[in-house]
Simulated assay, not measured.
Amino acid sequence: MERLPDVFADRIAVSLGDGHGRRAVLICAGGADLSAVAAALSRQAWAVGVCCLDPEAVERGQAATEAAGLVVDWRAGAAEALPWQDGRCAAVVCCGVNPAEAPVRSEIERILKAGGVVLAEPGSEVG
């Protein structure tokens, strides 16, 4: 599993700024270790949730953030069926997932608050 560089995690955290308790959801198709991103956002007062297709990646990420003393809501699942309530997220970060694909876009729109932000890794279309 490839761990995303801390500089990438820090750039995401800087881009989103202080969370003030707002929810940010990270979506991963699997393979990438999002624990650095989750930790960076958690340290900036974001309520962080991670949805990853790979259950083992979820277990590893949860162990890493718990070891750092951080509370992150790790869940195994697909980007096409996100396990969060409608309109509750201020930010969505996509890694290995194209947020412009119809089923994914629909789920992101469902969980994102009005005025929310979507960040995607380079090469993904935000639409």
Rank of each mutant, 00 (worst) to 15 (best):
E2D: 13
E2L: 13
R3K: 12
R3I: 09
R3P: 05
L4T: 08
L4S: 03
D6Q: 15
V7K: 02
V7A: 13
V7G: 06
F8Q: 09
A9I: 04
D10A: 13
D10P: 00
I12K: 03
I12Q: 07
A13T: 03
A13Q: 02
V14L: 11
V14H: 08
S15L: 15
L16A: 08
G17Q: 11
D18W: 10
H20S: 13
G21S: 02
R23P: 02
A24Y: 04
A24L: 07
L26G: 08
C28E: 13
A29M: 03
A29H: 12
G30M: 11
G31R: 08
D33W: 07
A36R: 15
V37I: 14
A40M: 03
S42G: 14
R43Y: 06
A45G: 01
W46F: 08
W46A: 02
A47Q: 12
A47E: 12
A47P: 00
A47T: 12
V48F: 05
V48M: 09
V48Y: 06
V50Y: 08
V50H: 07
V50S: 07
C51Q: 14
C51L: 07
C52R: 10
L53S: 12
D54Q: 04
D54H: 14
P55I: 10
P55K: 10
E56D: 08
E56H: 13
E56G: 07
R60I: 12
R60V: 15
G61S: 12
T65A: 05
E66Y: 08
E66I: 09
A67T: 09
A68G: 03
A68M: 10
L70V: 11
V71R: 15
V72R: 04
D73N: 09
W74K: 03
A76T: 15
A78R: 15
A78N: 09
A79W: 09
E80Q: 13
A81R: 15
W84E: 09
Q85C: 07
G87E: 11
R88F: 01
A90L: 03
A91F: 03
V92K: 02
V93D: 06
C94F: 09
C95Y: 11
G96H: 08
N98K: 00
N98Y: 00
N98W: 00
P99V: 02
P99R: 06
P99C: 07
A100P: 01
A100Y: 01
A102Q: 05
P103D: 09
P103S: 10
V104W: 00
E107T: 00
I108R: 00
I108S: 01
E109L: 14
E109C: 04
I111F: 02
L112N: 05
L112H: 05
A114Y: 04
A114Q: 07
G115N: 04
G115P: 00
G116P: 02
G116N: 05
G116A: 09
V117C: 11
V118N: 01
A120L: 04
G123P: 04
S124A: 15
E125S: 09
V126A: 05
G127V: 05
